[in-house]
Amino acid sequence: MKKKAQLKIWTTIAILIVFFVILMFGFIFYTQVEKISFERTQREAEARRSIDVAQVLTNLPELQCSVGAVERGICFDYYKLEVAEESINDEWLYYYGMFGYSDIEVKDLSGSGKNFTLYENQGDKTSYTTGFIPISIYDPIERLFSFGVIKVKSYYGQ
């Protein structure tokens, strides 16, 4: 009788242990999945941030071309880009408020083939995402448009 009772107690304990182990594994699995999902959301947010930085850049009057103001699409002036390479570095702190930790480059893909490095600030960040926006680059002296692209590397993480 005593042995039967003892067996019953051990069986109950075993079932409880199995119960809590299943519960624990389920909880660990769920939190891991949530963690992966959160990291992916964070990466997507950082990717969108690089596009946001590029869109801020497209609205800077110090880069916009002065022809075709009513036309759609983004247009930068070639000679303003040349000047901006230096002037943005000179006023680095002001532009840091807009661009944060990022590298910004404008590439002329069909005209001069020149690359304009406008802003560089990686800081102590280790990861990055990259965004691209196609633009027109206008040469006001030759009155010609070329196909360009804004490339923004947005840094995050430590």
Binding site: E44, R72, G73, I133, P134, I135, F147
Partner: peptide
Amino acid sequence: PVQVKDTYTMKSLATDTLTALLRTNT
């Protein structure tokens, strides 16, 4: 979650690319 911003970004990419392309001098 509905990915509204990704659809907007892709449409914006298509529009911006086409606009810049058509304007490009050769």
